[in-house]
């Protein structure tokens, strides 16, 4: 019929796009927050739960980063630099994606969903409202899992660390991921030729939100009332 065969097959672009497939496979399972049922609800309990969850998420996400095609080819120092500047964006994007199905609630974990009241109690209402603004953007765009996994990898590769040794190698990682997003969009979202750009344009709000989150948890750290695990502390101190 003169129709381009590959493009009309719904999964055509997906099968062709190796990077997207690898990222989908690498995507870690969600972990549980497991708030201590014997401790009464309080701001300290909520923050302790969030910090503990973040620490465990970080371990999983460092493992995930190693599965981003090309990431392990960077020097160890550059891998560290990217993670030290991009870790909070990755954690937030995961919360955002988990929260897409809900209204005004953030799914920090399947067993730890924060609504406005809980956010107030934990003293993170402003922060959670900014994260909800991101949720709203991606809801409006109807972001899919493929786009989410590529965008998350892009946010790490594009974390603008000042310490990068091999700038060209990081640039080529960015190019591979950006190319994967563009290929995916031109195969799967032919109705909107600007969709890849629209997704990239959500990253400034993500950067801003992550900076705010790091700042918030740094001041909590300074108050010293909330126990924090070593990896989380290490990365909070890396800014």
């Amino acid at each position: 019929h003169g129709l381009p065969q590959k493009r009309t097959f719904p999964l055509g672009g997906l099968v062709e796009n190796k990077v997207v497939s690898l990222l989908l496979v690498a995507e870690p399972e969600s972990i549980f927050a497991m708030p201590d049922p014997t401790v009464p609800d309080s701001d300290i309990k909520a923050l302790t739960t969030l910090c503990d969850l973040a620490d465990r998420e970080l371990v999983v996400n460092i493992g995930w980063a190693k599965h981003i095609p090309g990431f392990s080819l960077l020097s160890l120092a550059d891998q560290m630099s990217l993670l030290q500047s991009g870790w909070m964006e990755i954690l937030i994007l995961r919360v955002v994606f988990r929260s897409l199905a809900l209204e005004d609630k953030l799914v920090y974990a399947e067993d730890y969903i924060m609504d406005e009241e809980q956010s107030k109690l934990a003293g993170v209402l402003d922060l959670n409202n900014t994260i909800l603004q991101l949720v709203k953007k991606y809801k409006t765009m109807r972001i899919d899992k493929e786009e989410f996994v590529v965008l998350k990898a892009i946010s790490l590769a594009n974390s603008d660390s000042m310490q990068i040794e091999d700038v060209e190698a990081v640039q080529s990682l960015q190019d591979v991921l950006h190319g994967a997003l563009q290929d995916y969009e031109s195969a799967q979202h032919t109705e909107d030729p600007r969709r890849a750009g629209k997704l990239i344009m959500t990253l400034p709000l993500l950067r801003q939100t992550a900076a705010r989150a790091v700042q918030h948890f740094c001041s909590i750290k300074q108050e010293g009332r909330v126990p924090m695990h070593k990896l989380f502390l290490e990365l909070l101190e890396a800014r």
Binding site: V59, K230, L231, E237, A238
Partner: peptide, 20 residues
């Protein structure tokens, strides 16, 4: 770099949680 011992160790470790 000394300050980032855990990150360093996790990146060097060949088995990531995703593999397990």
């Amino acid at each position: 770099k000394e300050k980032h011992k855990i990150l360093h160790r996790l990146l060097q470790n060949s088995t990531s949680p995703v593999d397990l």
